[in-house]
């Protein structure tokens, strides 16, 4: 374990550009090294890919197939072409649901990241008491959503005696209806999402902060940099892989928001929190119309793929600036 203590260094973005051999696609040579790499990679990737093939890809393909059928296991499936897709798209609630989904995705992602960043910066450190505080802050993430939903129903109780209403009453606001009015429900749901998402992001950011090279802080202090400059020029650049993860996750998860809404408001009141998944649930699964439900999820999947590709492309464009590449030889 002699190497345990080696720092996991993140390269600051302003450092000397390292000449890199460039991404593989620019070189057309396919030598024995490349073949060997492929074999090694295949061996190391095999367990993950085999499991994914069996439990993700095959079910996914089956879902695509179901989306073109009326699913009736004991009578035989009926081919209905695009009918299931039409059912969803023709629903009057579809466009509002897309809008709510996007608003929620952007708001929750942004909110969680900002709050998570602040928490991570405030609670970073090795002291034992910080250990417990971080654990306490992390609690919302490990508690079952069913319980979280009950907690927030209590906090948001719309009467004047409600906990949050009492709090905002002190500063002369409220009482608010929270989940129970179409004007406030979406924001209320979003706050719960941020409250639960921020500690999650905090942990990932903390892990990133752990990897920042301490000598750079020292160097920045020697140069007389303020804390703001230090954050901007040393910490944030070093957190780039962390942001990459957070943005990718946000792109993947953003559109499929479901359980929170299902447990908190089920899309109500007056459809003000209806998102794509809850709509799909009502049109498809509540009525056991698996074809419709599949069609909805395929559309969701396609949208998510596009979004993820966009995030990846944006990342790559930035990352194509000089950086250390893994060895290709």
């Amino acid at each position: 374990m002699t190497t345990t203590g080696h720092p996991v260094t993140a390269r600051p973005v302003d450092a000397e550009p390292v000449p890199s051999p460039g991404p593989a696609r620019r070189r057309r040579r396919f030598g024995p090294h490349a073949l060997r790499n492929l074999l090694v990679a295949a061996v190391f990737l095999a367990p993950a890919l085999l499991i994914f093939l069996a439990f993700k890809f095959i079910p996914m393909v089956r879902a695509v197939e179901m989306s073109f059928h009326e699913v009736r296991p004991y009578l035989g499936n009926l081919w209905v072409g695009l009918e299931n897709y039409r059912t969803l798209l023709d629903s009057d609630d579809f466009l509002p649901a897309v809008w709510h989904t996007v608003v929620l995705a952007v708001g929750q992602t942004g909110g969680s990241m900002v709050v998570g960043m602040v928490l991570a910066l405030l609670l970073e450190g090795g002291a034992r008491h910080l250990w417990f505080i971080r654990t306490a802050v992390f609690l919302p993430t490990v508690v079952a959503l069913a319980v979280i939903a009950e907690v927030w129903r209590v906090l948001y109780y719309p009467g004047e005696a409600g906990v949050v209403n009492s709090l905002i009453g002190w500063v002369g606001l409220g009482p608010s209806q929270f989940f129970n009015s179409a004007d406030t429900s979406l924001w209320s749901v979003m706050s719960v999402g941020i409250w639960r998402g921020a500690p999650y992001d905090m942990m990932i950011i903390l892990a990133g902060l752990a990897g920042v090279d301490r000598t750079l802080y020292e160097a920045a202090a020697v140069d007389g940099a303020t804390i703001r400059q230090r954050l901007w020029h040393v910490t944030f650049p070093a957190l780039r892989p962390v942001f990459a993860i957070l943005f990718t996750l946000a792109a993947i998860r953003g559109l499929r928001v479901f359980t929170e809404i299902y447990l908190l408001t089920d899309g109500g009141p007056n459809g003000s929190t209806e998102v794509i998944m809850t709509l799909m649930f009502k049109l498809g699964l509540d009525r056991s119309e698996l074809g419709v439900a599949s069609a909805g999820s395929i559309m969701l999947l396609l949208a998510t793929v596009v979004l993820t590709l966009a995030v990846q492309l944006a990342r790559r464009r930035r990352a194509d600036r000089p950086r250390k590449e893994a060895p290709s030889r």
């Binding site: 993950a48 890919l49 994914f52 069996a54 439990f55 993700k56 890809f57 095959i58 079910p59 996914m60 089956r62 879902a63 179901m66 699913v71 990718t248 993947i252 998860r253 499929r256 479901f258 998944m277 799909m280 649930f281 699964l285 698996l290 439900a293 599949s294 909805g296 999820s297 969701l300 999947l301 998510t304 793929v305 993820t308 590709l309 990846q312």
Partner: peptide, 22 residues
């Protein structure tokens, strides 16, 4: 991308195909 795509489909939907696979 394939690995990313495994995280994209909501579980509620995959339930029936997944149960066949199981």
């Amino acid at each position: 991308l394939l690995i990313l795509s495994t995280m994209m489909l909501p579980e509620e939907i995959l339930a029936i195909p997944l149960s066949l696979v199981l």
